[in-house]
Design a protein around this nucleic acid. Structure first.
Lengths: 350, 350
DNA sequence: ACGGCTCCCTAGAACGTTCCAAAAAATACG
DNA sequence: CGTATTTTTTGGAACGTTCTAGGGAGCCGT
């Protein structure tokens, strides 16, 4: 007979029989109860080892009416920024003894709805959602009504009291603009990102405010929305340079767009950081290894992920679902794409 | 009273009461049985909608002794190649009505062991594993003994009869070498990748065989193992160029390494594709948008992911766990990093 | 009017755990 | 040694489904 024929999952009852105790005692051992005699404990553990017992969490969850599963719904795992976010979240959950489910929606609200349904059926204890583009504002109402703890990552949902964890988009964009202004730029563009994106709206808001504060007219600044991709970045750059009085620098919707802008510059024989300054947003791992290394707004993705996880965890444990938003700190990571060391060296030489 | 106070999950029994039928009938409706009267079905569905019933898959799985959960264990989600793989796998599972769990091991065998344990406890119906570096060969023996269907993605485990789905690494490396030889290169290096990696060993084997077939001595070729990262690539390049008779081109362990090599070249004022040819491996999405666009061995990751999922699905459905390995087709994607259009144009001009 | 069909529907036992209440065993006390 | 106290163990009901076996209602043919 093959070692593990199909239907022979070992249960707590067989362990009990083997160890000569009741199933209740085995259960006690399993959860490390103090009140079982060491000798008994040892007998039970031996049986568990010998019979190759595997704990059935499904059954346990059913009985206890709460689960150790938490879900994370990510809009695009293929995007390194969100992949890093997911990994940060996962780490916290794992450390807290929960089992994280990761699901990818590929920016499809339909898929997202399916996935949410699946997660509910699975009985998740809590959920972190980085919403797909175009998510209807009521997408999570069912979850909330059932008082399942939910935290939004990065993207806010209008008119809902669901806690959001994300970076300080306005401040980040402001820092970027101020940097460019310090470097002497006066015509600054905002490039890339879907025009209907909430995150983009926030970043754009900071961008315009900073421009206005510096006495520049935000309405004269090029504002080119595109897909938040490399192609999108290259495209946005074309739009910008086609102006009669083209900008000399840009703050980009995110790093990926910024890479695209650099690409576009090089295709035109220009050197990012010389002639045209580019600043990204997010500080993905790749930014430091790009050519040139990308000056960008660092948001500490992993940290945000961990924070989101902590928030959900707290909601689960306290049973309250009224956590506060968390606006993560941002800072400017100065590298070379808008006139760093390399460019200065160059200038000196000239 | 708040709409959804903590402990009020609606069950099949309450639906039954509301619809004036038995719980068995509700169960029948839930699974779309033909043998329930349309009128009854409608009454039940109405109750389901009205009471906001959520199906409890955990309970169902417990009773049926099989689950709709499948796991995928990925060594590094932060690596775009594996992220794409995960997304491809997920898509297939979802389409087949299974709920995929994604877990990331961050290349840690310890973490991997934990995650496998968790997945078993959760009662996964099947598992796809892209093994962490340094995974002991017996890491999956428990799973196999319990006859849980497992498929390995990309990375083989020595001495085990576990089906593997991966690209044709040997052929890929051979194609890369042949291309470089066609372009006139005679001193070709193999750059990057951990020296203990099985995948690297296979690619290296193809590399050496192709060299030998072309009458070149594989032992004279630079073979520099490093981390499979951008830094690693840059480092490997340094090693290669430090030789007394440095190579004029390289096939890289993967695209990320190739990007690093390009970076290193540019730091030295060299232009990838002119003076030094670089070929990557994998064809990640980014390759086409790199500067210069990367010539590489395309492996169709998503396709491999789907294939792996299909294999597991078939094992689950047939109950047999003796599927065959799948060696995916590869082809050379010619772009510009080893003398494409741009370089030729350049040569013409000269 | 009765057996035999269909068609719909249902009771109740599983599934593997947890947890309560309480029994049994061990230990302490006078 | 008997009783009080503490420690350890236990039976059995519950959790929300599925599934087997069968039950009742209506209809048919004779």
């Amino acid at each position: 007979m093959p070692a593990g024929s199909p239907k022979d999952r070992v249960t707590i009852i067989e362990i009990a029989a083997a160890a000569g105790v009741s199933k209740s005692t085995v259960s006690l051992v399993l959860k490390g109860s103090e009140s079982v005699h060491p000798a008994t404990r040892e007998r039970v553990n031996a049986a568990i080892r010998d019979l190759g017992y595997v704990y059935n969490r499904g059954a346990a969850n059913l009985r206890r009416a709460r689960s150790n599963i938490v879900g994370m719904i990510i809009n695009d795992l293929t995007n390194p920024f969100f992949a890093e976010l997911a990994v940060g979240i996962e780490r916290s959950f794992q450390a807290a003894g929960y089992v994280p489910f990761i699901a990818n929606t590929a920016e499809s609200p339909v898929r997202q709805a399916e996935v949410i349904k699946l997660m509910r059926e699975q009985g998740v204890a809590g959920l972190i959602v980085s919403a797909a583009r175009g998510t209807p504002n009521d997408a999570l109402d069912g979850l909330v009504a059932a008082s399942v703890p939910v935290v939004l990552a990065m993207r806010r949902l209008q008119g809902r009291r669901i806690p959001v964890v994300g970076p300080d988009n306005r401040l980040g964009a402001r820092l970027a603009v101020e940097r460019l202004i310090d470097l002497g730029h006066r015509r600054i563009a905002f490039l890339g990102g879907y025009s209907d994106s909430v995150v983009r709206a926030e970043r754009l808001e900071g961008f315009r405010a900073a421009l206005a504060d510096a006495g520049l007219d935000p309405d004269r600044a090029v504002n080119a929305a595109t897909t938040p991709t490399r192609e999108g970045g290259a495209l946005a750059l074309e739009t910008a340079l086609a102006q009669r009085n083209p900008p000399t620098g840009a703050v980009c919707f995110n790093d990926i767009v910024a890479f695209g802008v650099c690409l576009g510059l090089r295709r035109r024989g220009l050197q990012p950081g010389r002639g045209f300054a580019v600043i990204g947003f997010d500080d993905v791992q790749e930014a430091v290894h790009a050519d040139p290394p990308l000056t960008t707004i660092a948001v500490d993705v992993m940290g945000l992920g961990e924070r989101a996880a902590q928030t959900v965890l707290k909601m689960i444990e306290t049973g309250r679902n009224n956590a506060e938003d968390h606006v993560g700190a941002v800072h400017l990571a100065v590298r070379e794409s808008c006139g760093g060391p390399a460019a200065e060296r160059e200038e000196k030489r000239a």
